[in-house]
């Protein structure tokens, strides 16, 4: 299936010196099974896929690594620091991830609250500074606060990733103005991460002009993850194309689309 994107002039997404054709980044968690995950990621067209760092299960090692189902030659593996509540823990996880030997990128998460999974921005900034110093390309998961986003950029982050709404909530883009403001003010790529629920959410998010979107649960928890991955691919492309096309101005009153002249008496 082809889309109208061929008619739109766009540049590829570049993060930390790496270039990607797809503006949709996807996670690998919460799938009903690994085969569905692999097919959904294929259908999404994503090149960047996120993974988490966890202890090896000493009893059943063969089946638990995600790399048995995802070829690291075909995908760009972006390790996250999900589950970390302090800068120290996040730094530890990032170092372990880098040691796996795929790349020096990290999706940095420092969570501050268990119920909302909102970021601890002080810990986030602290960890970002250390990791940038150590040569990491840091993609920082943050809230939709402009000042934090600016500080993360100043700290040397390769990308800033404000949320659309809380992780795994599926509530969609709650604060388009803040996301647009962050995009307008930052020079590094802005990737909206977390909160998308369905294809229209992805489309609306991309229409704000952000550089990309990262999602996991919206695809993995759909009734048909492979079909939803396809929908997300189209929605991301559509939203990006609409942004580049430039929408018509909003009007509070109607304006006829057909001529008012030439009507019969």
């Amino acid at each position: 299936m082809t889309t109208a994107i061929e008619t739109v002039r766009d540049e590829p997404l570049t993060i930390g010196g790496r270039t990607f054709q797809s503006r949709l980044l996807v996670g690998t968690g919460k799938y009903p099974d690994m085969e569905t995950m692999a097919r959904a990621i294929e259908a999404s067209g994503a090149e960047v896929v996120t993974v988490a760092v966890r202890r090896v299960n000493l009893d059943r090692t063969k089946e638990s690594s995600v790399l048995h189902h995802l070829d690291p030659k075909h995908f760009f593996l972006l390790a996250n620091t999900a589950g970390c509540y302090t800068a120290e823990d996040a730094i530890r996880y990032a170092r372990l991830a880098r040691e796996a030997g795929f790349n020096d990128f990290v999706k940095l998460e420092v969570i501050g609250d268990e119920e909302t999974l909102l970021p601890d921005v002080a810990g986030l900034l602290e960890a970002a500074k250390v990791l940038v110093q150590e040569g990491f390309k840091v993609l920082a998961y943050t809230n939709e606060d402009l000042v934090t986003a600016l500080r993360l950029e100043d700290a040397g982050c390769a990308a800033v990733m404000p949320l659309a709404s809380p992780i795994g909530s599926g509530l969609g883009l709650l604060n388009p103005l803040s996301i647009r403001t962050i995009k307008r003010r930052l020079h590094v790529p802005v990737i909206v991460d977390a909160g998308v629920g369905t294809a229209s959410d992805a489309c609306i998010t991309m229409e704000q002009g952000v550089d990309g979107i990262l999602m996991n649960t919206a695809i993995a928890a759909a009734q048909d993850p492979v079909a939803m991955a396809h929908a997300m691919r189209l929605a991301t492309t559509a939203g990006r194309a609409a942004y580049l096309a430039g929408r018509m101005p909003r009007r509070e009153v109607a304006m006829p689309s057909s001529p008012t002249k030439g009507m019969l008496d």
């Binding site: 996670g27 690998t28 968690g29 919460k30 799938y31 690994m34 995950m37 996120t50 993974v51 988490a52 760092v53 966890r54 202890r55 090896v56 000493l58 638990s64 690594s65 995600v66 790399l67 593996l77 390790a79 996250n80 999900a82 372990l96 991830a97 796996a100 992780i167 795994g168 977390a194 990262l214 999602m215 996991n216 649960t217």
Partner: peptide, 10 residues
């Protein structure tokens, strides 16, 4: 000793 690897995550 900690032994870690990559698992599914978002």
């Amino acid at each position: 000793v900690e032994l870690v690897h990559f698992v599914g995550g978002g």
